[in-house]
Write a protein that binds this DNA or RNA. Structure first.
Lengths: 222, 222, 222, 222
DNA sequence: CATGAATGAGATTTCATTCAT
DNA sequence: AATGAATGAAATCTCATTCAT
């Protein structure tokens, strides 16, 4: 019933300067939206969980939907994305010469990010397709900011022969799928299984690197 | 507004013997739950879409939640799963000697299945984590029915050297992740992009086969 | 959930010749009306308890209200009352010379009657004031049939000096009140207390006889 | 349609400090529950009678049933009972030496109380057995608070010879029965008959006093 | 006689939102 | 900034009743 502020403190730069009611409302909403879904969370339950009057929600946010957007969209666009980009940029600025290094850094970073933004991730995976406003700017930004960097890396590794010729979109799909597959299995689906993270990451990196590599293996069955 | 019966007819063995009101309700509910989500679909809209009195819903299903469960759980447990198993069994009965053959059959079958049960798939991906009752028996059945078959194949390909030594769970995760990654991208996320299915399947099979293979490639970066 | 037929068998002369569905409906309705009240008993629950289709109720009874009336009014007017009158008539035909004898017979008869028609009594005490139709003919019949008999007895005992001068209505009220007070305490309010019936009846008779007697007692406090 | 606040104002100590909507809801509910019974009173009709939105009922009371309990239970336990006790205490503190005085005071007090709490009385007699929660604490409180006082008086009058030897429970039953018999006849069953209250009270007191007295009367039939 | 699908009105309850304080 | 009473629309669910079989 008492909300958890940690996630928001780390995401909103000036979260601590917001009036305390608003802080509590945002934190409670994140909690409840993530665990029960947006549509099955009532403003009443948010208020109760936040320990404020229900009316206060509508002083700060014009509607429940706006609360969702003001809660999640900045996180997605301003915070989630930039952070991802920042770290990726560092990652991708130096041209990796060894593909597995790139992959490992990528996976570890995503996994760490997901771990500290558990509820936000859950919220997004659940609500993204029902509320396209949440993510509508993502594609565009992705195309502007990340795609060029990734394309450059992709081109480089194609040239070096680390990646066999394929469409860039296919490459993206395979990398994202495998990365998110690990993240989601680890953090959302089976967080309580006993994972050997080091080993899983190593295997996934190897899997990706080999999977993307040219068919140097004469016959995979042999 | 008029619901689509095709999916249910193919999934429920005796769907056509149900009273017509119940048929219409089930079909409408599948439509609406899949497109707008369970929580944002009102029983009123289901009734209107089905062309029946709202009360009839509660004659046949004690509550909205029970409608969801009676709609989706049998599909998941009795139909979806057995069908998957049937085709997989045929697939896995003959011991494949060539891993890519196995993978290709697997992926094609899953993709075809997803294509013909679009709305059910959507419903499940959206509601599974909010209503654990929907899937709670899946794990158990999977362990009983599919795991042994897959383990046998896994062991075989390990012995032949097509798969490098790894935990069976890791193998499962990588295969499922890549397969479902393709399925979900293709059917749910970007159904309208212009896909070259043949090519994507071929690439994914190659990706998986190589990714799982032993490290015959001395150094993937060269 | 299986209804109890005993009460109705003893009250309806041809109950056993009714179609079995109707029997079961009447018995279930008596059960449920008595235990939960008319308004909070749904026709659905009656049907379930009776093990018949809900529609059958409306084949036999035009409405739920009619079921109540057809169930209870004959019991009140044709059965309850005549039986009461019959036994009272026997009781009152012979002019009692000893007031306590009259009172004792009266009380015992009422108590026995209440005991074998527990649920009917409960039903009537609960629904009488909300459904005046149930009892509207009672007053009239009482005035026609019983009042004269009782008035004769009252007049007699007034003359003999067993009853002090008072209004006949007051006499009635005191007798009925004390009699029903015992019946209701015994059968409805505290049926599970350990009663010594013989002794309670004796005390009540004495109480009534003395209470109605002339003020031969100079001062009750002494 | 406009509810009557008088009864509640006199029963709830801080009734006037409740928000006006709640006041109106309570008063309307008392009115309607008493006249039509709990089950046949809809929350819609309560709201209309109170002149408030139906939803407000559920802001203040979680359910219709809770409205009943919050309306009636405190009245029964905190108000009705204490008031009864207060007046009885005054009544019983001075040890009566003349039994009829005690009885007369008792009856008059009860009758006055019933007269000013007409609707509450009606509500209780109708709903008590369908909602045991309403009265479940009464027995206990009675045993704690009133029984000792009454036992003392009973013992006293047994000693003085005003009451003949009998079980205390029997005494209680006879007194309560006769008192409530008058109250209920007067206020609930035949409020419109033309009563001579003075005379009825006098007769009832005499009836009780004589009825409880020892068998000084050699033979009640003469 | 009996069934059970279907209805439609209405009951209870929820909920986002407004407003006076 | 915050409260809490109040609203009104809509959601879920109940129920007496009808009707075709």
């Amino acid at each position: 019933m008492t909300p958890d502020f940690s996630e928001l403190k780390s995401l909103y730069p000036d979260f601590e300067h917001l009036p305390s009611g608003q802080q509590r409302i945002l934190a409670s909403a994140l909690d409840l939206f993530a665990s029960k879904g947006f549509a099955s969370t009532s403003t009443g339950s948010i208020a109760k969980c936040a320990g404020v009057a229900e009316g206060l929600i509508f002083k700060h946010f014009r509607s429940k939907k706006e609360l969702l957007l003001r809660l999640a969209r900045p996180l997605v666009l301003e915070i989630f994305f930039p952070m991802a980009i920042q770290s990726l940029q560092k990652l991708l600025e130096r041209q990796y010469t060894h593909l597995p290094d790139l992959l490992e850094t990528l996976i570890k970073e995503r996994l760490a990010f997901a771990r500290s933004h558990h509820r936000l991730l859950r919220l997004l995976t659940q609500e993204a397709c029902l509320h396209p406003e949440l993510t509508e700017a993502v594609q565009e930004r992705f195309d502007q900011l990340m795609r060029p960097m990734l394309e450059k890396q992709f081109a480089y590794f194609c040239r070096t022969g680390a990646i066999r010729p394929m469409r860039f979109e296919t490459f993206l799909r395979l990398v994202i799928t495998s990365t998110m597959g690990l993240v989601i299995s680890r953090e959302l689906l089976f967080p309580d299984a006993n994972w050997n993270d080091e080993s899983e990451i190593r295997e996934t990196v190897k899997f990706l690197a080999q999977g993307l590599a040219p068919e140097t293996v004469p016959d995979a069955t042999a």
